[in-house]
Design a protein around this nucleic acid. Structure first.
Lengths: 249, 249
DNA sequence: AAGTGGTCTAGACCACTTC
DNA sequence: AAGTGGTCTAGACCACTTC
């Protein structure tokens, strides 16, 4: 195995930093995705090839690949191969976008970008994104429509160091696809905090409802594969005809 | 294997209803939990014993047990054994109760039961719980406090046929524990739909805030292990100092 | 020391896709 | 026919808990 794990057999007795082989192999492969040696959509070597390359059995490789599939980092297709997961719209639609029409199929909202600015991070942004004093961020404000109806006002904050040049671009609808493809930052998970709030006059005007209308506030922190905090997003959503779907298992 | 699966080796080619052995074994064990032959907290036979009893290899048993552990139906403890998961407060706290104080540790809310009634299900209840015309339900209305502060008004509806005698009882705080222990109905998963709403005058009075205050409405359908719809719960939550936590992976 | 689950190996054969 | 992942077996040894 080329990437440096503690040598020897499976689990030397008494070793402090013991970590199962299959997890070490998972870490190696995650690192290859995180630093771009494995690109989204790329096919991995077969289980047998990986096993021989890494000096372990096929079963151990399989266990690592299964774990990464459960983490949604990989997609396995019987008879075809194992692929690095892509941040395509369908995947994001189901993994990260939980707003669903009360009746009807899920769909992806479009975005009208209202502003893109770069500035020094304020205290709340530094705290939430774990940034140093003086760090700069890119702020994107946009209005999102589902089936043509405005339902979401969204303020997005990204550390500028992570997305150099973003401030000068026209941000696409699918930002996570951009982060992965253009900046090598793959969002692996996110934490959302939900509250019910009364809309401010400004947000209400954008959404075409009276000020004070109840809205679902979604405070999302998106975490990259290397555990860096990659984006902070505050959305206010009208939920008269849509709901936030949460499956508890 | 005593519980009737399609015989023969692993995956007879061409058989229509093919289902992997380890999934068939999972199904057998889920059935034993669902009908009470395996009780919450009970220790399962060891992997080797199960393998010999069911006529498969230990690896296949392990795969079934691992799947059930991922489903949170079992708890495995190295060196001790494999146990049927319990609906204790800690487990429910993390699996089903997603409201968290903005600052501070998670805790379980207490409950003040406002009313318990039995009645014929109305149309909305029949629809949501998939009940026949004329079916009866038990309705529980309660006020829940976190750290002494009223934050949730909750309306709970349960098919009476599933919980005979509940209407005459004093419902405990932990209802899922009651369902499992007293009525043999184990909640395996739930689907929640969240909206932001304006509080009605009645709910607002209970919570001690002005009518129209924005609240987080949680519409939860709880599903039993045998896929029956076991409970419909509609909660209205004040989110000034708490939030709903949703981890997206 | 005995019993449990956890990891790892080696090998067989099946199911599915592509050529 | 060849290549991929999916399932299943049998056996070894490790890590942890209990007695």
């Amino acid at each position: 195995m080329a990437d440096g794990r503690d040598g020897g057999g499976a689990g030397t007795a008494g070793s402090i930093g013991f970590r199962p082989l299959y997890q070490q192999i998972r870490d190696v492969l995650v690192q290859r995705i995180a630093d771009g040696r494995l690109q989204p959509g790329e096919m991995l070597p077969s289980e047998m090839q990986l096993a021989s390359e890494l000096g372990v059995s096929q079963g151990t490789v399989r266990k690592a690949l299964d774990a990464m599939t459960a983490e949604r980092l990989l997609v396995r297709r019987q008879g075809r191969g194992t692929f690095v997961a892509e941040h395509d719209e369908t995947r994001i639609l189901f993994q990260f976008f939980k707003l669903v029409p009360d009746d009807g199929a899920r769909s992806f909202p479009d975005s009208e970008v209202l502003s893109v600015t770069a500035a020094e991070a304020d205290e709340a942004e530094r705290e939430r994104l774990a940034l140093d004093d003086g760090a700069t961020v890119v702020r994107i404000r946009r209005l999102r429509r589902l089936a043509g109806v405005p339902v979401i006002v969204e303020d997005i904050v990204v550390p500028e160091a992570m997305v150099e040049g973003l401030a000068a671009m026209e941000p696409p609808n699918n930002l996570y696809g951009l982060y992965a493809g253009r900046f090598g930052v793959t969002i692996g998970r996110a934490q959302e905090r939900l509250k019910a709030v009364a809309l401010t006059a400004a947000d209400a005007a954008l959404l075409g409802v009276p000020a004070g209308t109840p809205a679902l506030e979604i405070d999302r922190l998106a975490i990259a594969l290397d555990d860096r905090r990659a984006e902070w997003r505050l959305s206010r959503c009208l939920t008269e005809h849509v709901h936030y779907l949460s499956d508890l298992r």
